[in-house]
Simulated scan of single mutants.
Amino acid sequence: MIQTLQFSNFYSFRDDAEVSFEVGRQPAASQYDLSYADGSRGNKVLAVVGANGSGKTQFLKPLAFLSWFVADSFLNTEPKVRIPFRPHALSPEEPTCFELSFELDEEHYRYRLEINQHHVLHESLHLKTSRLYSYVFVREREEEGYTVKQKGFGFRSTQARQVRGNVSLLAAAHMHDVPLATSMVEYFRGFSYNLQVTGRAHYDHARLLNSALFFQDHPAMHRRASDLLCRLDLGLEDVELEEVEISGGGEHDVEGPLYMPMGIHRSAAGSFRLPFLDESSGTQSAYVLLHRILPVLEHGGIAVIDELDNDLHPHMLEAFLDLFRFEHSNPHQAQLIFSCHTSEVFNLLAKHQVYLVEKRDLDSEAWRLDDMVGLRADDNLYAKYQSGALGAVPEI
């Protein structure tokens, strides 16, 4: 479970920014609370709201980037390829920094990363042993190469120093069967997101087929997805998967069978089957969204979803938040952070669960509503946001 993330010089955020899932002592207990091993409270759900172009997507990207970098950079990066991110356009030579505090197997860890587009400058993992953190490993770039010090990490020193500069030491150690590194990689692979280097991964038919292929391999999750879609008033009685052949190659030119979700529609007048390509864009988007969310609910982890409300009626937002809210649907205390343009989110969440993002003088900044002086827990957040009193609205 994530506690906090600090980052700087990342896309439109030049100065220090923080994403905090921590809940202080003042907010009343709610079903959106989760419990950390030390007894403190955290949020299951955070919303990110702001005008177009303010930096909402960039505020979510650090979690997606860290997930990829820790889990997959060793296998998916060529030796001289740039690390796939961008620093702030006005600080291209300055390092980009991340610090993630999280809980894994009831232990508290802190992962630090400092990079430029060519090299890791610093990478370290610390474990909380009392009130303080002790290092597991520290990797530093120097003129002649890398130095690595470690304490019980178990990665051979000669191999650790030779890890190339554009990949994570954790990713490399996992490939050398270091047990803690494998646990870390599995943890970061538990992040599910719809983001890529250029921004949100927009819906297309290939994503629908990929989701269907996933659900074909996970029938219990497909049953759950079908039940949820049928409850969302989409006119569906059931959803079945049907093997199909798609000619023409291109983005669908894959080995093995492909599957098409088929919407089952019934009424007193009769019934029919409709391929999901002929269903509404909202129905298709909801199906792909459940592919991102249900594995996190099933196994634990975090879902990072840009524009959760895309193609969805505002009333459907609450149904997706409820999946994380209740213990029976979220037994492993999975977390969700999402951006949206739906103002109704202010009626669904408390002030310590909502971040606002705004861009001023080419720099994005973000703040949580409970950091605003004078804002009360019982204030009408929806009305204040709509009136512009909270900021983070377009000036039209």
Rank of each mutant, 00 (worst) to 15 (best):
A89I: 14
G55T: 03
G24R: 06
Q58R: 04
E78L: 14
V81E: 15
E93N: 12
D38Q: 03
S30Q: 12
V23M: 08
S54V: 06
D72W: 05
C97K: 14
P79H: 09
E94G: 10
V49K: 09
W68K: 01
D38R: 01
A28G: 15
V23I: 13
G50W: 03
A47R: 04
E94Y: 13
P87A: 02
E78H: 12
R25Y: 13
T96M: 03
S30R: 13
G42P: 03
S30D: 14
G24A: 09
F98I: 08
L90I: 11
Q26F: 14
F65W: 00
A29R: 15
L90F: 14
F65S: 02
Q31M: 14
V45I: 12
V23E: 05
R82G: 08
E78Q: 15
D33Q: 11
D38H: 00
A51L: 10
C97F: 13
P62C: 06
W68T: 00
H88V: 08
D33K: 07
K61Y: 04
E22H: 11
D72G: 04
N52R: 12
K80Q: 09
G53I: 12
S30A: 13
G39C: 10
F65L: 02
F85D: 00
P79Y: 10
Q58W: 02
G53H: 09
R41N: 08
G53C: 00
P87E: 07
Y32D: 06
A37C: 11
L34K: 07
T77M: 11
G53T: 09
S91G: 11
R25P: 10
D72F: 07
Q26D: 15
P62L: 02
K44H: 05
K61L: 04
K80H: 11
S40A: 11
K61C: 01
L46G: 06
T77Y: 01
S91A: 15
F65E: 00
G24H: 08
L90Q: 13
G53L: 10
A28S: 13
K56Q: 09
S35K: 14
D38V: 00
R25C: 12
F74G: 01
R82P: 01
L60F: 10
A64L: 06
S35R: 12
Q31C: 13
R25D: 15
G55W: 02
R25W: 11
T96G: 02
C97I: 12
V23D: 04
N43M: 09
N43P: 06
T57Y: 01
E94S: 14
V48D: 02
R86T: 12
P92T: 06
F69R: 00
D33N: 14
L90T: 14
F85P: 05
E94A: 15
N52I: 07
R41M: 11
N43S: 12
K61T: 05
